[in-house]
Computed example of a mutant assay.
Amino acid sequence: MQQANAKDERQFNVDRRSLLVGVFASTAMPKAAACEPEPDPLAEVERCAAALAESLKVAHGGTWSVQISHETGFVAVSRDFA
């Protein structure tokens, strides 16, 4: 009987990474779904990056910075510590 209980306990073991992924996904999914294609692909990138920054603000608080370089293919969304 103890082996059955041990198996059940392992089945519901949640590590920190899984928990954070779940929290982020639950806050980001509505914003990501709202990121529908636009006629101008550059405007779509800007809008989707802003939506991601807003989701991170809701999930973690603080201010988030977006940097996009279309010339180099670089996109960064990071916490703004300024």
Rank of each mutant, 00 (worst) to 15 (best):
M1E: 13
M1D: 14
Q3T: 13
Q3V: 06
N5R: 15
N5C: 08
N5F: 11
N5K: 14
A6T: 06
A6M: 08
K7W: 12
K7Y: 13
E9I: 10
R10G: 08
F12L: 03
F12I: 05
V14S: 13
V14D: 06
S18T: 12
S18Y: 02
S18E: 14
S18I: 00
L19V: 07
L19R: 14
L19Q: 15
L19W: 09
L20N: 06
L20F: 15
L20D: 03
V21H: 13
G22Q: 02
G22H: 03
G22K: 01
G22N: 10
V23G: 07
F24P: 08
F24G: 02
F24R: 09
S26K: 11
S26A: 12
T27H: 09
A28I: 01
A28E: 02
A28K: 04
M29I: 09
P30T: 01
P30I: 00
A32L: 15
A34W: 03
A34D: 09
C35R: 07
C35I: 00
C35W: 01
E36D: 08
P37S: 12
E38P: 04
P39G: 03
P39Y: 06
D40N: 10
D40P: 01
D40C: 05
D40F: 05
P41C: 04
L42R: 15
L42H: 14
E44I: 00
E44N: 12
V45R: 09
V45N: 07
V45H: 06
E46W: 00
R47N: 08
R47V: 03
R47H: 03
R47F: 02
A49L: 00
A49M: 05
A50R: 07
A51Q: 08
A51P: 05
L52Y: 11
L52C: 14
L52M: 15
L52D: 09
A53M: 05
S55W: 01
S55Q: 02
L56G: 04
V58M: 08
A59P: 01
A59M: 06
H60Q: 11
G61T: 04
G62N: 03
G62I: 01
T63Y: 06
T63V: 08
W64H: 07
W64Y: 10
S65W: 04
V66Q: 05
Q67E: 15
I68Y: 02
S69N: 10
S69P: 10
H70L: 11
H70R: 10
H70A: 11
E71N: 09
E71A: 10
T72S: 06
G73Y: 07
G73Q: 06
V75A: 11
V75Y: 11
V77H: 02
S78G: 10
S78N: 10
R79V: 00
R79S: 10
D80T: 05
D80V: 02
D80N: 11
D80S: 13
F81N: 13
A82Y: 05
